[in-house]
Design a protein around this nucleic acid. Sequence first.
DNA 1: ATAGCACCTGGAGCGGACTCCAGGTCAAGG
DNA 2: CCTTGACCTGGAGTCCGCTCCAGGTGCTAT
Lengths: 125, 125
Amino acid sequence: MTIREVSERYGLSADTLRYYERVGLIPPVPRTGSGVRNYDAASLGWVELIKCMSAGVGIEALTEYCRLFQLGEETLEARKALLVEQRRQLRERMEDMRKSLDRLNMKIENYDQCLARKERELRGV
Amino acid sequence: MTIREVSERYGLSADTLRYYERVGLIPPVPRTGSGVRNYDAASLGWVELIKCMSAGVGIEALTEYCRLFQLGEETLEARKALLVEQRRQLRERMEDMRKSLDRLNMKIENYDQCLARKERELRGV
DNA sequence: ATAGCACCTGGAGCGGACTCCAGGTCAAGG
DNA sequence: CCTTGACCTGGAGTCCGCTCCAGGTGCTAT
């Protein structure tokens, strides 16, 4: 599968796909004789994984995960530890965002009341 | 209240507090005769607001909110619209992060099973 | 009077996550 | 053959959200 097809399938630009490979977010993609990327099922799996995870896990952790994966069975525990730590951090950030959201909701409600009051006053005049 | 005291109270560096003011995340802080910042209750309120919101809302939107606020009553509706739009975006990002978290949980569970199986095999030998 | 310290400003630097570009290669079609 | 178009590479540029720095000012304590 060409980079263009992968790009279209996952909604990631070709540049982004090359970037992911460059920095080691996904293992080297197989190439044709002339050096053109030819994504196989394994590569597609990595692309899908990274696309999904990159919203919540940083590049650095994901490259480390990819590196460990390529080292084989011996790194199973290290990989799990990495994922657990990333989960902790993600939960923390989500909790902060939830606080922002709560605050946003409070403020919006407040504006609603404020605007409704002005409305009534206008009609009362 | 000096910048140092505010810094300690909210756990934000003095540099960050100056930065917030510089880019207009909070309105100009009152100064002493010699130009030193002297935070009053209103400024503290802004600092607290920004600290809470910055986890979920971008700088640009927050500066715009601050700008509108300083323009007075006329901008009530615009401010509300801004908050509603930011809430929409925040919910979207949180949803993406939730997907990452789900995926992370699945993978961790998988590693757990994998490691447990290896454990059993080891004991079985 | 002077040393020391907290504070000021404008501007540069940084890390993360892309995004864009110039210049080059290759396979296919006219 | 020669052009065209998709792909390649390495490197530079961009945006965000800080963070650091140099050089300067002013209060305070000795």
